[in-house]
Structures are given as C-alpha cells and as structure tokens.
Computed example of a mutant assay.
Amino acid sequence: MRNLVLVFLGGGIGSVLRYLTVVGAAKLLPKAVFPWGVFAANILGAFTIGFLFALPWMREKTSGPWLFCATGVLGGYTTFSTLANDSWLLLLNQHSWLALLNAVGSVLLGVLAAAFGWWVGGRWAA
C-alpha cells in the first residue's frame, strides 16, 4: 500500500508540473504551432530519469525514492500519449515536417538527454 501511495503522490506532482510547463510554453510562444511544452517536458524528464538512475541509491526500481521520483513524478510529468497525439494533429493540419520533427526529435533528443543525465549524475555522485 505504501508503494501505491508514493506513486500516486508523485504522479499528481508530476502532472501538475507538466501542466505548468505546457501552459508556460504556451504563454512564452503563443503563436507556436509546434508543441514546445510537451516537447520540453519529455526532454527534461528523460534527462532527469537518466540523472536519477546514475545515482547508486536510486537504481533499485522497487525502492521508495524510485517509485516516488521516477515512476510517480516523472511518469506524470512526461507523456508519450500526448507526444503521439500532437504529432498526429500536426500531420492532420498539414505540418508534416513538424510532425516528423516532434516524433523523431523527441525520441532522439530524449535518448541523448537520458545519456547526458546519466553522465551528469555519475559525475555528481562520484
């Protein structure tokens, strides 16, 4: 039961943070067609999970800190379903290059961000 509460609380925090990121991006770039807020949340989340996993005390995926931070907060903060839907909407609205940039760019930059997070976390923990 404790683990479910940790994931629940973390997920709520992550979802609110994602909302704030998306709304903040929309206010900074009100005329943007590209979904910058979701893009930023996914890249920041990928970096953060890489950073966390590089910390020795965070590597146990059934531990309280991992369940709260990675599964909960980052699970609520990042979103594959919105990435997929935003890419589809870009395609429907004749923005095929932006759709491709969003889908492929999110995955490639996400992997690079996770790797960079691992590197930074490894240096920080040493």
Rank of each mutant, 00 (worst) to 15 (best):
Y19A: 06
N93D: 14
L55C: 03
H95E: 15
L67H: 03
L92D: 13
A41D: 08
W66L: 09
F39T: 06
F51W: 11
A46G: 11
L20P: 06
A25W: 02
M1V: 14
V5P: 01
G121N: 01
F8A: 14
S63K: 02
A126P: 06
A25H: 09
F39K: 07
F39P: 05
L28N: 09
V73M: 08
A40Q: 09
N3S: 14
L20Y: 10
A125C: 11
S63M: 03
G105T: 01
C69M: 13
D86A: 04
A113H: 03
G75W: 04
G76A: 08
L52G: 02
L67W: 00
L91C: 11
R2D: 14
L74I: 03
F68S: 02
R123S: 12
G37C: 09
L4A: 15
K27Y: 10
V23Q: 13
L74C: 10
A32K: 07
Y19M: 03
V23C: 01
G121S: 03
V111N: 09
G11Q: 08
G37M: 10
G50E: 04
T21K: 00
L91F: 12
F8I: 05
I13F: 08
G72C: 03
M1R: 12
W36M: 07
L91S: 09
F39A: 01
W36C: 09
L109A: 11
A32N: 07
W119K: 12
G37T: 04
V104L: 13
G10I: 05
R2T: 13
L108Q: 09
A70F: 05
G105Q: 06
L91G: 05
S81I: 09
P56R: 06
L28T: 14
W124R: 07
L9F: 06
R59S: 09
V38D: 04
L112A: 13
N85V: 14
W97S: 15
W88P: 06
L52K: 09
V22Q: 04
L29S: 13
R18Y: 04
T21L: 02
L6C: 08
G75M: 02
A46M: 01
W124I: 14
R59I: 07
T82G: 01
W119E: 13
G117K: 04
L17Q: 00
P30H: 10
N42F: 06
F80T: 08
L28W: 12
A32C: 07
P30G: 05
V104F: 04
A103P: 00
G12L: 01
L98H: 11
C69N: 07
N85K: 12
G45F: 02
F8S: 14
A46R: 10
G14T: 03
A126H: 14
G11V: 03
T82S: 08
A113V: 07
T62M: 12
A126K: 15
L108H: 04
G10A: 08
K27Q: 13
L29N: 07
W118V: 12
R123A: 15
T82K: 10
R123Q: 15
V104W: 02
G50V: 02
L112I: 11
P56Q: 10
L17W: 08
I49T: 12
L109D: 06
L108S: 11
G11Y: 01
G117Q: 05
A113E: 10
G122H: 09
S106L: 05
G50D: 10
P30I: 07
